[in-house]
Design a binder for these strands. Structure first.
Length: 482
RNA sequence: GGCCCUAUCGUCUAAUGGUUAGGACAUCGCCCUUUCACGGCGGUAAUAUGGGUUCGAAUCCCGUUAGGGUCACCA
């Protein structure tokens, strides 16, 4: 294939949807795999939906996910501008050409008439469609209306009784009857184009070779085909991607959980995991491999192997992948992440050495899926416990416990040089043997005393990491508090 | 409702006319472990349905059913 150019063309609604991320990713992978160009185009033709900072958010989210675009805002490749709101002249020029050729026409119908028409059609269970009322206007009438400053739109003049057939890489042959296609508005009364017009013109002008987008666009594709034909332009190859679904199989939506890439980022999911996960939602290489890095995805990706049915966004599988990716992270990036999480936490006023944090990571890595979770699951590495788990208290804290722990603290205080966790194990085992009790009788209350919790790394690990002083002071505190 | 798309374990999927229908996540059980995890081993679990075509169908064709998308001066 030559001159592969694909685009991700979101409208700036405020955040990047995970479905959008998947669409962007497939475009990106396809471009990279085929030495093509990945273009970002902002479809901001709806003035009423303008959201402050949306474009920045979008670009940041893409960057975070590792999807660097080759052309787009602030990165001109000779096909700009990449904001549709800056290309109004172009759309108007082409719309005029269509009107000239009678492939489009002025429409002066009021919103009132349109709603009445639609209601009527709906009540008769008919498809809501414009009735071509203004198509019969004479040139003189149109000129009069225009001169009188009447608001107008420009509509696509869909021919009657034709079949529109196109080929989709994923769905193969798709056919529509023009009788089922509405005379779509191309230019709105505010002078802005609708998606359909702007999209077709830009894809042509930007020399897009493959239109890879969500399946929700499949039913408006015949309108686009019609436009390409009217202009006499070559039609790009289409690939309509299966939708991402809620657990109840409806189109993935905000109502049923997190849908923005930023939400997952904020929760501690890594970009590698999220990318890996959405890549597999609707595509696989044909083998059993499930763990991928971006470069491997690029190497393996092909549109031929994209599925044709919708895929449920299964958070459990994402969690698993996130864990897998987390465990493979190099030590220094774990360290950096943990430091930045601490800086953003309640513990941000304290200082911890890299050696210390490194030990914390080693002890927790098998128990968490993000550095953020280390803070949540083992706060005792960052400050003294302020409360003690009730359930563990009733289970492990017996009348004789304070005395036993005090004795244990005394023996710990005698420890001179501590080089590893076993230095703490010895006195505990000895005490247990002397008292004729199982080590568990000491281990469980000890864990509760120093951590406030009943789960976590081995007690000796905890003691070794927090050190002798803290161990003793926490035991003393617990003896008084419980 | 019209039009369009889709249909393999609960979920993501493999098997492109011949397999005991495979893997992964989840789930369950056992082992490891004086906690929680990790890990190891094993189990439960699917071709929506009815017809064709064929020696042979998850796979090809038709119908049915179910789900989804779309029917805006939103993208």
């Amino acid at each position: 294939m030559e001159n592969i150019r694909v685009r991700f063309a979101p409208s700036p609604t405020g955040y990047l949807h995970v479905g959008g991320l998947r669409t962007a990713l497939y475009n990106y992978l396809f471009a990279k795999r085929n030495s093509g160009k990945f273009i970002l185009r902002i479809e901001d033709t709806d003035q009423s939906r303008y959201v402050e900072g949306a474009v920045e958010n979008l670009i940041n989210a893409l960057k975070w996910a590792g999807l660097e675009f080759d052309e787009g805002p602030d990165k001109d490749g000779g096909f700009g501008p990449y904001f549709q709101s800056q290309r109004l002249d172009i759309y108007n020029k082409y719309a005029a050409e269509l009107v000239e050729k009678k492939n489009a026409y002025y429409c002066f119908c009021t919103p009132d008439r349109l709603t009445t028409l639609r209601d009527e059609q709906k009540s008769k269970n008919l498809q809501a469609k414009y009735d071509k009322h203004c198509l019969s206007l004479s040139d003189a009438q149109i000129k009069d209306n225009l001169d009188a400053g009447m608001p107008f739109v420009i509509r696509l003049n869909v021919p009657i009784g034709e079949k529109i057939v196109f080929n989709d890489i994923i769905r193969n042959r798709v056919e529509f009857d023009t009788a089922t296609i509405d005379d779509q508005v191309l230019i709105k009364s505010d002078g802005f184009p609708t998606y359909h017009l702007a999209n077709v013109i830009d894809d042509h002008l930007m020399e897009i070779s493959h239109v890879i987008r969500g399946e929700e666009w499949l039913s408006s594709t015949p309108k686009h085909v019609l436009l390409y034909n009217f202009f006499g332009w070559e039609i790009p190859l289409f690939a309509h991607l299966p939708l991402l679904l809620n657990p109840d199989k409806t189109k993935l939506s905000k109502r049923q959980g997190d849908v923005a890439v930023e939400d997952y980022r904020a929760k501690g999911y890594s970009p590698e995991a999220l990318v890996n996960f959405v890549a597999l939602l609707g595509w696989n290489a044909g083998d059993d491999k499930e763990f991928y890095y971006m470069d491997e995805l690029i190497e393996k990706f092909s549109l031929d192997r994209v599925n044709n049915s919708g895929a449920v966004f299964d958070i459990q599988k994402l969690n698993w992948l996130n864990t897998e990716h987390f465990r493979k992270l190099p030590k220094d990036s774990l360290l950096n992440q943990l430091k930045s999480d601490i800086a953003n936490s309640e513990f941000n006023d304290k200082k911890y050495s890299e050696e210390y944090l490194s030990l914390v990571i080693d002890s927790m890595i098998e128990r968490v899926a993000s550095t953020k979770e280390i803070l949540e699951k083992s706060p005792y590495f960052f400050s003294d416990p302020i409360s003690y788990e009730e359930e563990s208290k009733t289970k492990n804290w017996k009348p004789e416990t304070p005395e036993l722990l005090s004795e244990l603290a005394k023996r710990f205080s005698l420890l001179e040089e501590i080089t590893n966790k076993h230095d703490f194990e010895k006195p505990l085992k000895e005490l247990a043997a002397e008292k004729g009790i199982g080590a568990g009788k000491l281990i469980h209350p000890l864990r509760l005393a120093v951590s406030g919790m009943s789960t976590g790394p081995g007690v000796y690990d905890i003691l070794y990491i927090i050190g002798k002083e803290k161990t003793i002071s926490r035991i003393e505190k617990a003896v008084k508090a419980i």
